[in-house]
Design a protein around this nucleic acid. Structure first.
Length: 693
RNA sequence: GGCGGGGUAGCUCAGUCGGUUAGAGCACCGGCUUCAUAAGCCGGUUGUCGGGGGUUCAAGUCCCCCCCCCGCUACCA
């Protein structure tokens, strides 16, 4: 029976290019959709650019352009990248569309009717010079937790803590540089606690979520009252103004998931389909594919919105993990932060689609792109095994035809046909690695068959020409069977196989019946081996992309010292400046001297009972002056490494009461945190107590 | 610390309801083959299944304790 299936992948944000991390999801989703279509189901794949929010505003401002121009360019780039990877949408919309605006209004009205919108006065920062409330990203100041300067109002990029912009120390408007004032603004919230019981049941029993996700929600959110969701942002904000609340705009996370519906609606308008037949039809399955980072929105808020507005809830939310490259987070300085477009300049998209497929399972696990494994796997599985079957036999039959009747093959084709439902079940469950294993088994058998029959020997005897044709007919049919099973992953290979054997692959059941009598065309290379040089070139290019992008920043900043540190090569990564941009506000020498930096000697360093990240340090500032300081450096330093060494301490930092005692200063360090922490040290000769000027 | 997920061959992983001698691919070694994109075929090596205890006729699998890794989260001034 044919199923009606609506599929979405998360909307990529219009502020950045598609990279290999994104592609895990789009490949996973595209494979699933192609599989369903090949099975004959009425399956449609909808996506869109996510275009609203403060980041787009900031970017537009920096580039001196309108937001609309920024998102139009990025949309074009996204579509180009997707096409390059054979990601095929039925519609690709935009959250900045009339259809989305109308649907947002519809959802909003439903929430109003359900009395789920509450207004509350919130103290917010206001820029008196520009005359506007400041969105989180327009306020910068010192992180109240770790003291890092130049942090945005929503959270600290260094210590990753979240807070309200009103918590920032020394806040400054990035619009005018003015010190913001605290003013009251009326803010709108969605009260989803009303749906707590419903969400509890849905997340735990509907089967829509992977078990580990259901547990996560139960443990993190559902055990206590659900917090109201702040969905309005005061002007100026790039988004849609809330119809019944002038001056307020919907927060980007409100309109983004509605973009799934809007994209569907655009498609319906174009094709004459009924939107309700997809989104309000209990017989239509709805599948969302997302990454684990946006679990919260898709498993609590979004179902609450759908439920309230009378839409169908997702049948499944398929959640995947992150991509790592060679076991590490993608890193710009190592060249492993790879854009889709950079990859495509060097390598075939089929490689990546197959590699991801061979590693993806139904769980939330992270996926590692090990570049050596990548090359081995593609070269041995796809080139050595699969494509090789065609390559060894097609030439012997080029210009002729497959045997008029399918020859005796010892049951090989039948066995392959019998694997159909096993492989299909694996695809259906997103267990692609299982499917790939099954398929490679078939490829092994085909190669064994060819090897045993030795058509190249028989060919020397003209009397055995029919035998050669029969053997090659079997092998090419086995090859075609494999190409059918791989078609969701490798659509180009399926198409090429159709051309080679003069019979397009249009349905999964093509693997059930062997072809006979069709012309065999001249064999063309189907897939090249991966050369290591290509991979290396891609990595080098990825670093270059970054260097070009960072060049203006480096020129404007003080990059001289860094060049020395790099051993004179002069080429340091701009990664860190990108993560934590230079503070725009200038400070005077007087500002600087407010901070009393001193050289100190670590006289004692201890683990703190019950603390995972803290070490307790006793610092000597010379004489009898001692300071007790807690520092979050446990992952990077052992206490015994520290005793005796010199550090730089902020000596006049206000004491802070912590869970384990009072901290009377802060030791200076660089790095992103965790193991990546590098304490500052003076050159030898410095003495405890000396001030750092 | 709390919660979640893991720990199986050098690497990436599979192991269903507990059931024979714990598997696959890659890598490695030996042989065969030379039609094929230095591809293919046959054979071989590799494991205290994180550690310890328990239940059982039988434990990689179930239960308890501990160790380690990852993620989220909490004090990282």
């Amino acid at each position: 029976m044919s199923r009606r299936i609506l599929v979405t992948a998360a909307l990529p944000y219009a502020n950045g290019h598609i990279h290999l991390g994104h592609l895990v999801e789009y490949a996973q989703t595209d494979i699933w959709v192609r599989f369903q279509k090949l099975r004959g189901h009425d399956c449609r794949f909808f996506c869109a650019d996510d275009t609203h929010g403060t980041s787009i505003m900031i970017r537009a401002r920096q580039e001196g352009r309108r937001e609309e121009d920024v998102i139009a360019d990025m949309r074009e780039a996204h579509l180009r990248d997707f096409a390059g990877f054979d990601i095929e949408f039925d519609n690709y919309g935009s959250t900045h569309s009339e259809s989305n605006r109308e649907l947002c209004a519809e959802f909003w009205a439903a929430l109003r009717r359900a009395d789920m919108i509450v207004a509350r006065d919130v103290e917010r920062l206001f820029d008196p010079e520009v005359g506007t409330f400041l969105a989180d990203r327009f306020v910068r100041g010192t992180c109240p937790k770790c003291g890092t300067e130049g942090q945005y109002g929503d959270g600290c990029e260094k210590c990753l803590s979240n807070y309200a912009p009103t918590d920032l120390l020394n806040p400054r408007s990035t619009l005018s540089g003015a010190t913001p004032e605290l003013r009251t603004s009326t803010q709108l919230f969605v009260r989803i606690e009303d749906l707590h019981e419903f969400l509890g049941t849905w997340t735990q029993t509907s089967g829509a979520l992977q078990p580990e996700i259901a547990n996560y929600l139960q443990g993190h959110f559902l055990g206590e009252p659900l917090r109201d969701w702040d969905v309005s942002r005061p002007a100026r904000y790039f988004g849609f103004e809330i119809p019944d609340s002038p001056g307020n705009y919907w927060y980007v996370w409100f309109d983004a998931p509605i973009g799934y519906v809007a994209s569907t609606r655009d498609w319906c308008d174009r094709t004459g389909e009924s939107l309700d037949g997809w989104w309000k039809n209990p017989d239509c399955e709805i599948h969302h594919f997302i990454g684990k980072d946006i679990t919260y929105f898709h498993t609590l808020f979004w179902p609450a919105m759908l439920k309230t507005a009378g839409y169908q809830l997702p049948t499944k939310v398929h959640i995947h993990g992150f991509l790592t490259v060679d076991g590490e987070k993608m890193s710009k300085s190592r060249g492993t932060f790879i854009r889709g477009s950079t990859y495509l300049q060097h390598l075939d998209p089929a490689y990546l689609r197959y590699y991801f497929a061979s590693k993806l399972g139904p769980r939330v696990d992270d996926l590692d792109l090990n570049l050596e494994d990548f090359r081995n796997k593609i070269n041995s599985d796809l080139v050595g095994k699969v494509v090789n079957i065609a390559s060894r036999c097609a030439r012997l039959l080029a210009g002729r035809s497959l045997s008029a009747a399918y020859p005796e093959d010892g049951g090989l084709f039948r066995e392959g046909a019998a694997a159909s439902e096993r492989i299909a079940a694996a695809y259906e469950n997103c267990d692609y690695n299982q499917a790939m294993r099954e398929i490679m088994l078939l490829a092994d058998r085909a190669n064994q068959y060819i090897d045993a029959q030795q058509p190249w020997t028989l060919r020397k005897d003209p009397a055995r020409a029919d035998d050669v044709q029969n053997i090659c007919s079997v092998a090419l049919n086995l090859f075609r069977q494999i190409a059918v099973y791989l078609a969701p992953v490798l659509p180009r290979l399926a198409r090429q196989t159709g051309e080679l054997l003069s019979a397009p692959i249009e349905h999964w059941d093509a693997a059930q019946q062997p072809l006979s009598g069709t012309p065999v065309n001249e064999f063309q290379h189907l897939l090249k081996r991966i050369e290591i040089e290509k991979v290396n070139a891609m990595l080098a290019d990825s670093q270059d992309d970054l260097a070009k992008k960072e060049a203006p920043t480096a020129a404007a900043g003080a990059a001289v010292v860094g060049a020395e540190a790099a051993g004179g090569s002069g080429q340091d990564s701009g990664e860190w400046l990108e993560k934590e941009p230079l503070v725009a506000d200038l400070c005077t020498i007087d500002d600087f001297t407010k901070v009393d930096l001193r050289v100190a000697r670590v006289v004692e360093a201890n683990h703190v009972q019950g603390a995972d990240k803290l070490l307790q340090l006793t610092l000597s500032l010379g004489g009898d002056v001692r300071r007790n300081v807690f520092a979050g450096i446990k992952a990077a330093y052992a206490p015994e490494q520290l005793v005796g060494r010199l550090v730089v301490v902020v000596a006049n930092l206000a004491p802070r009461k912590m869970k384990f005692g009072v901290s009377e200063g802060m030791v200076c360090a660089a790095g992103s945190g965790g193991r990546d922490v590098f304490l500052l040290a003076p050159d030898s000769g410095a003495q405890p107590g000396q001030r750092v000027h």
